[in-house]
Computed example of a mutant assay.
Amino acid sequence: MIQEKQIALETFEFQQGDVLQQVPVTWQQVGCAPRSDNVVLFLHGISASHQALVPSTGVVYNDAGWGQGLIGPGCSVDTDHFCVLIPNTLGSCFGTLGPRSAANGEGALYDAHFPAFGIHDAVRLQQAWLRAIGIEQLHAVIGYSYGGYQAFQWAVNQQWPSPRTAVLASAPKGRGRPQELQDLKRYASLRYKALPGQTWTHHAQTLAAWREQRVRTLQAYGVQVDCPHEQQAIEAWAREFDPLTLAGLRAAALGFECSHALAQVSTDLLILLCQTDTLFPPEVVDGMRMGNRTTVQQINGSMGHVSPLYEPDLWAEHLAPFLQCYRV
């Protein structure tokens, strides 16, 4: 059973002290009804939505179904046994609180001063949301890529540690260059300031540059971008995904670092890395001190950073036993 849900938290305080009211959190719930022993939190990538599986009703985002090889009956995250919650992350543009590019009468970005946030804020929002919907205990946390940063943050969290955490194709330190952040802010500014009150589609040159930025990203991930299906997906993403949103998420990634705390992790932590991933190669954890309940495994995949999504069976060999052998 796939359900799309949303709740508004009365308030949320960022770590730096900013407080916002009526904070929306949107998520997808898949599988069994939640119990005290079966809830798995699955955290998505930086430009993904929370729609790991394609919903049967309502709005369907361009990337819906990205987790269909990992989540479902008989998959690594077996929905015959688990209740899987996939929240849209803080700062995203698919229903959860985040910055939005939009034009007022003068073409200004009205959310340009959205509070700065980090990976720790994303996890704190997830914890507040879980408590608000009555979830006090998790079976596991799983995070892919940007969601892996959050999964690491869950693992080192002393206030509400997950009993077991799996990280797919990620690292305990954020990657990226400051110049990328400046480019994203420039795209966001051009989107509206050039022609106040008009939409992104009116800015052909800027949209083309934004589309090309997506192509470069997917190529770095290891995706073949020349096929018609991918071209259509790129076009849809370029029109759907807000540059100011991606700037906020990229800033959070650039500021993330928790490798110093890995040695103190006292819960079960599984780190899965793909040998052909150029973004998060197996060497990203070389030399790091790990807790004695941490396991690092290398996946022999050919699809680079998107291997968990395109070659899920390779990851299931490690992920499924990690989840199932502890299942009550």
Rank of each mutant, 00 (worst) to 15 (best):
15 Q>L: 11
15 Q>H: 09
275 Q>A: 08
194 A>E: 12
119 I>C: 00
83 C>Q: 06
107 G>S: 05
84 V>G: 01
289 R>K: 14
159 Q>M: 09
245 T>G: 05
321 P>G: 09
263 A>H: 11
133 I>S: 07
61 Y>K: 00
54 V>K: 11
100 R>W: 08
195 L>C: 08
289 R>G: 07
250 R>K: 15
115 P>Q: 06
70 L>K: 01
283 E>H: 10
16 Q>L: 04
243 P>N: 08
262 L>H: 07
44 H>L: 02
197 G>H: 11
67 G>A: 14
293 R>Q: 13
298 Q>K: 12
163 P>H: 09
245 T>N: 07
210 W>K: 02
245 T>P: 01
232 Q>I: 10
267 T>R: 10
324 Q>L: 15
11 T>R: 13
88 N>P: 03
28 Q>E: 12
96 T>G: 06
216 R>D: 13
228 P>N: 08
184 L>W: 05
105 G>T: 04
285 V>S: 02
62 N>G: 09
200 W>H: 13
246 L>P: 01
3 Q>N: 12
41 L>Y: 01
116 A>Q: 14
46 I>Q: 04
134 G>S: 08
30 V>Q: 05
167 V>E: 00
89 T>V: 12
142 I>K: 00
285 V>K: 01
138 L>E: 03
99 P>N: 05
293 R>V: 11
66 W>M: 04
69 G>R: 00
20 L>W: 12
149 Y>S: 00
226 D>N: 14
269 L>V: 11
272 L>M: 13
273 L>R: 03
113 H>I: 07
143 G>F: 00
16 Q>W: 01
65 G>E: 09
128 A>T: 10
220 A>G: 15
105 G>F: 00
215 V>Y: 12
190 L>H: 10
314 L>G: 08
275 Q>I: 08
4 E>N: 14
6 Q>Y: 00
222 G>A: 07
147 G>S: 02
126 Q>C: 07
295 T>E: 15
283 E>C: 10
131 R>Q: 14
151 A>M: 06
310 Y>D: 11
146 Y>Q: 09
167 V>K: 07
276 T>Y: 05
154 W>T: 00
194 A>Y: 10
251 A>F: 03
118 G>W: 00
14 F>H: 09
182 Q>D: 13
286 D>K: 13
304 G>S: 03
6 Q>K: 14
237 W>C: 13
53 L>Q: 08
121 D>V: 02
274 C>H: 05
265 V>G: 02
159 Q>L: 14
202 H>C: 11
183 D>N: 12
218 L>P: 02
100 R>E: 12
73 P>G: 06
160 W>L: 12
25 V>F: 08
56 S>Q: 15
214 R>P: 02
74 G>M: 04
220 A>D: 11
59 V>R: 14
167 V>P: 03
321 P>T: 06
23 V>F: 07
185 K>A: 07
192 Y>K: 00
123 V>L: 08
136 E>S: 15
261 A>M: 13
2 I>F: 04
266 S>A: 15
94 F>G: 06
271 I>N: 04
251 A>R: 09
257 E>G: 01
142 I>T: 01
133 I>M: 14
244 L>N: 04
18 D>H: 14
250 R>G: 01
128 A>F: 04
267 T>F: 07
